[in-house]
Write a protein that binds this DNA or RNA. Structure first.
Length: 155
DNA sequence: GCCAACGTTGGC
DNA sequence: GCCAACGTTGGC
């Protein structure tokens, strides 16, 4: 299957591109939305690349690139009573939530704030820019991905 | 901090 | 299966 491209949101107060850079790989846990989970479980493959997006930031925007390094597996935080992601309805023999493992690829030389993304004509159909889209994991087309990466790598 | 948009829950 | 109430996301 062809390589796919994604956009994954993270609040930099909780986990920023610099945290990701320092960790090199991270477990993308804490996803508690069925649509986002389904993308991870059904459509993501090892080798897919994604835009690391800072949400709820000043300003929000595209911060870097990562690669999926391990397919979805049960999210351990759902069984951890001390975790804020604990889900009492999820059973160990039938886990409700899964998460992928991601590897850091690059941090953009130029952070691309959301208002700039909105001005880019090639990106006008991006799910991120549609009104009311809150999904924390969403697909992007190869063209959209390349366009953003080109902007991010420019000095 | 506000609020619009959307998802989830639960009563019926 | 409908829908009101509530919670969350996330830009501003």
């Amino acid at each position: 299957m062809a390589k796919k491209y994604w956009l994954m949101k993270s609040e930099p107060d909780a986990y920023s591109i610099d945290d990701f850079k320092g960790d090199k790989t991270t477990y993308w846990d804490g996803i508690r939305n069925y649509q986002a989970r389904n993308f991870m479980m059904k459509d993501m493959q090892v080798g897919d690349e994604f835009i690391f997006y800072h949400s709820n930031a000043k300003p929000p925007g595209a911060a870097g690139v990562g690669v999926i390094s391990k397919a979805a597996e049960p999210d351990p935080t759902q069984f951890d009573k001390k975790s804020k992601y604990f889900d009492e309805k999820s059973k160990t023999d039938n886990p409700r939530w899964h998460c992928v493992t991601c590897k850091f690829k690059s941090k953009f030389k130029t952070f691309i704030p959301l208002p700039e993304l909105k001005e880019m004509k090639p990106l006008k159909n991006m799910m991120l820019l549609q009104k009311g889209t809150r999904l924390s994991i969403q697909p992007v087309s190869a063209k959209e991905f390349e366009h953003i990466v080109k902007l991010g790598q420019a000095q």
